[in-house]
Design a protein around this nucleic acid. Structure first.
Lengths: 139, 139
DNA sequence: TGGATATGTTAGGATAACCTTAACACTATT
DNA sequence: AATAGTGTTAAGGTTATCCTAACATATCCA
């Protein structure tokens, strides 16, 4: 189950995590709305996540992440946030652009780069900026 | 002709430019070797580049870039180099990883980010590092 | 409790972007 | 002009997306 995920599947994973935060259980409908795709597309993607052991869902039920799926999702989300913070707070890129490009770049950076980028931000940014980055060390 | 290029097509463009540098004229065979694909795949990609007005090639002839194609290719190559320099010289990422990830990220960053990243490097890096970045201002 | 409404699944396709091999068409070299 | 190298084309495969429409289940409330 450790093959690489496609960008799109990583996006689904990330979206599930984001929805979890305020809604506990994630519904196909909400995911579809958030990602702007048909419910059928979500159902398909969930099958893929299940095959990878990253999500669970019983028939007609809500979607949850497995522990492994949660870990993966957090990594993706963190990559996103760290990249956005870099673009916005270090480079001064327009927030909208930063958001959009972080979304694309998040699928390209590996663990080494992430670790180093975080270290860089920690010695560069104000504490107030860092506080807005939920960087749980273990992930 | 100003639609977006796919990552793959940008890669072809970049490779053509790189081959141009030492070989003047670029052959299908060389491109195929460089990119690790069949010659047929190169022929196909060239058709796409032609449709976009980015490359010229007469039947059975060598490949050249149009002025527009050259400009585009330079942009892609520069994005690559700037990103690699950032990863390697600022973050200290392993050169091989930096190269690989720059290759993925180069398709994700827009002009604003590029401009700001270059400015950042200019105030951060040693002159000796900057010298190795062929940054023609106009592009 | 039994419809109405919302939600989720499945089947069937469409599209796009890749790639390949094999056969053929040129070109160039000797 | 024969050979070896180079480029093209045709035909097809794969994979990852997405969609619509029809159906299945669940939920809610009158």
């Amino acid at each position: 189950m450790r093959e690489n995920l496609t960008s799109s599947i990583e996006d689904y994973l990330e979206a599930i995590l984001e929805l979890c935060e305020d809604q506990v259980a994630v519904r196909v409908t909400d995911l579809a709305a958030k990602l702007g795709v048909a419910k059928a597309s979500v159902s398909e993607a969930i099958q893929v996540l299940k095959q990878h052991g990253l999500a669970d869902q019983e028939r007609y039920g809500r979607i949850t992440l497995t522990p492994e799926g949660l870990a993966q999702a957090k990594k993706v989300l963190r990559r996103h946030q760290v990249l956005r913070a870099f673009l916005e707070s270090v480079l001064g890129v327009n927030p909208e652009t930063a958001e959009k490009e972080a979304c694309l770049m998040e699928h390209a950076v590996g663990p080494e780069t992430m670790q180093r980028l975080i270290a860089f931000l920690e010695r560069t940014l104000e504490q107030s900026d860092l506080d807005r980055l939920p960087i749980d060390r273990p992930n």
